[in-house]
């Protein structure tokens, strides 16, 4: 049963990811990217990471994709769909992608010897994923958490400054 759902979600994620990089219309790319994010969230649920699945849907499929959609509406010019969508060096790029794939396959081949199946017990036990996640985040990883908050603040200020300069001009 678990394998059936894994293959369902994995196939969905890979197919919609392929559509993201092959569709001509940017809006279609964005919508297929949302679909990919939902499939990845389902994979997180299979991995017993329920909190991350919720964050994935809220932050990626919610916030980031709304940002993308707004920018697409702001910068959309219909004639960009007519031009060729790929570089001239497309074949070289595909060859490089294949090379990367071979390297990753070689590394993964080494991991096949490792213990094949995941431990049956969830990493957290009875307390629940979200609670133990919060405890870990606010005790052991408190300092990185603060650093990330500063990073988000800097990104927010940077985005506002970049966009505001445009209005002043």
């Amino acid at each position: 049963m678990e394998q059936f759902f894994f293959f369902l979600f994995a196939a969905g994620a890979v197919i919609s990811a392929l559509l993201v990089i092959s569709r001509r219309n940017v809006m279609h790319c964005a919508l297929f990217l949302v679909l990919t994010f939902f499939f990845v969230a389902a994979i997180f649920v299979l991995l017993k990471a329920e909190f991350l699945a919720a964050v994935q849907v809220l932050v990626y499929a919610g916030a980031i994709m709304v940002l993308f959609t707004f920018v697409i509406f702001l910068v959309h010019i219909p004639r960009t769909e007519k031009i060729r969508q790929t570089f001239r060096q497309k074949n070289l790029a595909l060859a490089l992608g294949l090379l990367l794939g071979l390297e990753v396959a070689y590394i993964l081949y080494g991991t096949m010897a490792a213990p094949a199946s995941l431990p049956a017990a969830a990493p957290v036990g009875a307390v629940g994923n979200t609670e133990s996640f919060g405890v870990a985040l606010f005790t052991r990883f408190l300092f990185p958490f603060e650093v990330v908050s500063v990073l988000l603040l800097a990104a927010m200020i940077g985005a506002i400054v970049l966009a505001k300069k445009e209005i002043d001009r």
Binding site: M1, A10, I43, L46, L108, M112, S117, L118, A120
Partner: peptide
């Protein structure tokens, strides 16, 4: 948990 998904699939 009859059919576990191996780590390598992920």
């Amino acid at each position: 948990m009859s059919a576990e998904v191996p780590l390598s699939y992920y």
